[in-house]
Amino acid sequence: MHPSTNLGRRRLLGTAAAAATAAFFGTSGRVFAAMEDVDKAIADFGGGAEAADGTITLTTPEIAENGNSVPVAFSVESPMTEESHVESVMILAADNPSAGVATFHFTPRSGEAKASTRMRLARTQDVVAVAKMSDGSLHRASANVKVTIGGCGG
């Protein structure tokens, strides 16, 4: 057997499979969200302001055994006064069928801009948290979560 022939055949089959997959996803539209959707969601959320890293801490497990229920928590440094507080925090999952997870709205009475919930992750992906402050500034944090069993059903 000539190694070069096998490699050639394998590459041809791989290309054909890739083309078929691309055609399927192409005609039916994108199946999963992607970083561009995340960027667009952040632009809509923050009115186009640049999101600086830091000020918000995002806590997720490194590995999620069950993609159906992945804990997610965040905390934003802020005095939470009328003059200076967190207005909203948006959580996005970059590679879910749809990027949005939840958007939390705070007021000074919240005391602390922190919250947690449990989310579904379809597969291993980046989770992004973006905080919008009362002065219009945006802050973001992200974490990669490895998912062993995907949690989007179907």
């Binding site: 159906n68 229920s69 992945v70 928590a73 939470m80 999952a93 879910n96 749809s98 949005g100 997870v101 939840a102 958007t103 939390f104 709205h105 705070f106 007021t107 009475r109 919240s110 005391g111 602390e112 922190k114 919250a115 947690s116 919930t117 449990r118 989310m119 579904r120 992750l121 949690g151």
Partner: peptide, 22 residues
């Protein structure tokens, strides 16, 4: 009202929410 959440389908079944208030 002091706190609210807009929830998308990516939130798990039996939604759990933990938050703070002064």
């Amino acid at each position: 009202e002091f706190f609210s959440v807009d929830i998308d389908p990516a939130v798990s079944a039996n939604p759990y929410l933990e938050f703070s208030v002064r």
